[in-house]
Amino acid sequence: MTTWHIILIASAATLALKLAGHLVPAGFLERERPARIADLLTVALLSALIAVQTLGAGQQVVVDARVPAVIVAAALYALKVPFIVVVAVAAAVAAGIRAFV
């Protein structure tokens, strides 16, 4: 697989899902249990991505400048600071630690 293959297949899949919601008669996903799982799936995947992105380095778990950056980001989100500002501050925290420590 090349990067383009990955991009094309993933884009086709997400677009097909969007179309399914509008073209297929409602039913399965409106029931309580599937709707709840679909909802929690988003939470689990995003949380797992945060963990891997913060602690993962290939197949190793390491604690480095990303950890304080993410803690600062969490504090800023709690204070309702806008997304784009938080992301920029998190990058600056990690970059600052790497430059000066």
Binding site: V43, L46, S47, L49, I50, Q53, T54, A65, R66, A69, V70, A73, A74, Y77, F83, V86, V87, A88, V89, A90, A91, A92, V93, A94, A95, G96, R98
Partner: peptide, 15 residues
């Protein structure tokens, strides 16, 4: 530039 930490912060913002 800390872009790896920015990615983690972006996921946190979505969550």
């Amino acid at each position: 530039w800390g872009l790896d930490a920015a990615a983690a912060a972006a996921f946190l913002g979505l969550l």
